[in-house]
Amino acid sequence: MHHEAPLYELFGLTFNLSNVMMITVTSAIVFVIALLATRNLSMKPTGMQNFLEWVMDFVKGIIKSNMDWQTGGRFQVLGVTLIMYIFVANMLGLPFAVVINDELWWKSPTADPVITLTLATMVVGLSHYYGIKMKGLKGYAEGFVSPMPFLFPLKIIEEFANTLTLGLRLYGNIFAGEILLGLLAGSLATGFAGTVVAIIPTIVWQAFSIFVGAIQAFIFTMLTMVYMSHKVSHDH
């Protein structure tokens, strides 16, 4: 069940072309959805605009549960982009996987730890950036020694642990889902009887993967806001 990745070397950097393609597809889908939803903006929302407004309100609720809207409002676009991007990315790997010459081309971009850890690192990096920007260098540094100075090493470890868990949780869930789907479709469904047997669990697992994909998108956004609030809020 292990396929090679289509690698490509450029400027001394290795590109996984499958990832590049899937990232582009995901971004394009998210952008098109958002663009279609906001074509005819009106005071009385209809159809797609309603949906996107619901997403925005949903993210607003996530932010509000972590910090006051005064400080959290600026993260709304980040949150909405994250949740839509990760959700779409999680969904892309569900219907099928494309393998050409034993190279895996079509999959969820979030089934690759490089992608998820990049997102996680970006989020944690942003939280540090906003921590310094909004509380000043002094306030930011004090965050590492409060409430007790001897917690400093733990705080440092926490930052790396946060990044790792944030990225690997998403990756693990989606990758596991795809592996099992691949097993069901590739290994079990050989011959007529195997295919018939594989239909039910495949459907069930796809449904569950949709659920997991949605939940993971939510959790990623939620934890992003939790880490943000740790850095930018004064009373923590």
Partner: peptide, 13 residues
Amino acid sequence: LGAGGHGFNGGDI
């Protein structure tokens, strides 16, 4: 962790 590949995947990042 299963991504597979040789060298540093800096391009993806």
